[in-house]
Simulated assay, not measured.
Amino acid sequence: MPRRLGLTGSIGAGKSTVAALLREAGLTVIDADALARQVTAEPAVLAELAALWPDVVSGQGGATQLDRAALAARVFGDPTQLAQLEALTHPRIRTATAAALRAAAERGESWVVQDIPLLFEKGLDAGMDAVWVVDAPRELRVQRLLERSGLSREQVLAREAAQWSPERKRARADTVIENTGTLEELRAQVSRELGALQAGIPAKS
């Protein structure tokens, strides 16, 4: 199997941009959020979501739609409901991840990136061969989210508070990607760190 690079970061840090740069460099990136969206679009999962939270699913049959914002608002900050959602979706996400890893192995890839927002919070860093944390100063991260997400400052800060602090993530990282400059500066940094990784500099045991 390929070695696994865990990619995470605080909200607004630019993790998705780094993931895109790694794809640009030719690596397979397994995006946990994208897999979650695929899983929650499956008819069987939509039916179970509708049974649990009728107000977050609309339509019938092939026209059924999930209101992701409503679902997030329902489960965010409620450990019981969040656990219900995770019990429904996480086994399917793990199955899809395993399939993607097998496909990468069949292609002969040496490294695969797993883009996981809650990598540390869910204890998934233990299964990685190396971990990158993308970070930026708090006010810069908040401003990025305010500009693109439609969330209020209070909502952004609440979501950040539900995750590990940037300092705690940085302390556990093998590499910290500092996303404070231009895209070209970020691309150069990612290229440099990826080169070191692929050159065989010892990863986390």
Rank of each mutant, 00 (worst) to 15 (best):
L21W: 09
E178I: 02
T40M: 15
D135Q: 01
A203P: 15
V176K: 00
A173S: 01
L22M: 15
L157V: 00
Q155C: 00
A73K: 13
H90N: 09
Q143A: 15
V112I: 11
G61D: 11
R168A: 15
Q189G: 08
Q198D: 06
S205N: 11
L119A: 09
D129F: 05
V133F: 04
L82P: 05
E24K: 03
G181H: 10
L66S: 11
V45Q: 06
L194F: 02
I116G: 02
A87M: 09
D115Q: 00
T80N: 09
T97G: 00
A34H: 05
W164Q: 11
G12K: 06
I93N: 03
L85E: 07
R23H: 11
R68C: 15
G14Y: 00
I116N: 01
E184I: 07
E109Y: 04
T182R: 04
L140M: 10
E193P: 04
D33G: 02
G14F: 05
K169Y: 03
Q84L: 14
L85H: 08
V156H: 00
L49A: 06
E109P: 03
T64L: 11
R170P: 05
A98N: 09
V75P: 04
L151E: 01
R172V: 10
L140Q: 14
V56P: 06
E24P: 02
V133A: 06
L140E: 13
L151K: 00
R170T: 12
L46D: 01
A104Q: 12
P91F: 08
Q163F: 03
T89P: 07
T182E: 06
Q60G: 10
S152G: 12
A63H: 10
A158C: 00
L35Y: 06
T95Y: 04
L85G: 06
R159E: 08
D129Y: 07
A96H: 10
E139P: 03
L7H: 01
A47F: 08
E184A: 14
G6Q: 11
S110G: 11
G77F: 02
R172F: 04
R23W: 01
A34Y: 00
L194S: 04
L119K: 01
I177C: 02
A98Y: 05
L27Y: 05
L197T: 04
P2T: 10
P43R: 02
L66P: 07
A104F: 08
N179S: 03
L49S: 07
